[in-house]
Amino acid sequence: MHTTVSLHLRHSRAARVTIALLSCAVLAACGGQHAEGAGNSAPTTSFTEQGVTVTLSVSDWHASKGTLTAVFTPERKGFHLYSTDLPAGGVEGVGRPTAVSVSGSVEADGKLTASAEVRSITVPGVETPLPVYPDGPVTTTLPVRADGNGDATVLIGYASCSTQDGCTIPVSDHPVHLHVTGDRATFNPR
């Protein structure tokens, strides 16, 4: 995308400020995407499935170690995600855990943690309370390390529900591809 800005006051401070602001506006209009490796931004990718947008990033990548962050954002107000500690099959078949796992040339170097506090809700027909996060976005982090250079797969799972509108279909093992070397990690579209 090419943008031409014509200003009569090219050398004035006001003109330089205006050009800087217009550059920021153009970047925002183009989705705010950064080229891989530009500045200090971490590599990111995202997808939307079953009413939740998941944004993944890898940060602090040094000596084949880093942090994989996944932000789960329900698209509709009033929807929550289940705890990472929920059993894989839910409680009495209800719910699915918020899950991030890795395979291939990357492995977990610790436990998946979430930034939100867990609360319990009761669901009609289920005796055991269900552990969920408050409505809205949830950020999870997973320390990871590479076993060498190569390809890895991040598997994402979750289910979003609303106490008023019910639940979306659970997402299980949605793959996101990652390529790692000792000094960088990048997401690969496949």
Score class of each variant (00 low, 15 high):
17 V>H: 08
66 G>T: 03
125 G>T: 12
33 Q>T: 09
35 A>R: 10
74 P>H: 05
180 V>M: 04
184 R>C: 02
130 L>D: 00
176 V>R: 00
75 E>D: 12
28 A>Y: 09
106 V>L: 11
84 T>I: 15
60 D>C: 06
93 G>E: 02
12 S>F: 02
61 W>I: 04
166 G>A: 15
22 L>G: 06
182 G>L: 04
176 V>D: 00
126 V>I: 11
20 A>C: 06
26 V>M: 15
29 A>C: 13
173 D>A: 13
46 S>P: 01
135 D>N: 12
20 A>E: 13
4 T>Q: 12
165 D>W: 08
77 K>R: 08
116 A>Y: 00
99 A>C: 08
63 A>C: 09
187 F>A: 05
14 A>H: 10
78 G>W: 03
153 T>K: 13
29 A>H: 08
189 P>H: 11
25 A>M: 14
105 S>E: 07
180 V>G: 00
169 I>A: 11
64 S>D: 10
64 S>K: 02
61 W>S: 01
64 S>P: 00
142 L>M: 09
24 C>Q: 13
80 H>A: 05
163 T>V: 14
81 L>A: 04
128 T>G: 04
40 N>H: 09
105 S>H: 10
162 S>Y: 08
66 G>A: 10
67 T>A: 11
58 V>A: 08
81 L>W: 04
110 G>V: 04
187 F>T: 01
165 D>I: 00
148 G>H: 13
58 V>R: 00
44 T>P: 01
24 C>T: 13
31 G>S: 07
149 N>A: 14
106 V>N: 00
51 G>T: 06
112 L>N: 03
127 E>G: 14
55 T>Y: 03
123 V>R: 08
144 V>K: 01
159 A>H: 05
42 A>I: 07
64 S>N: 08
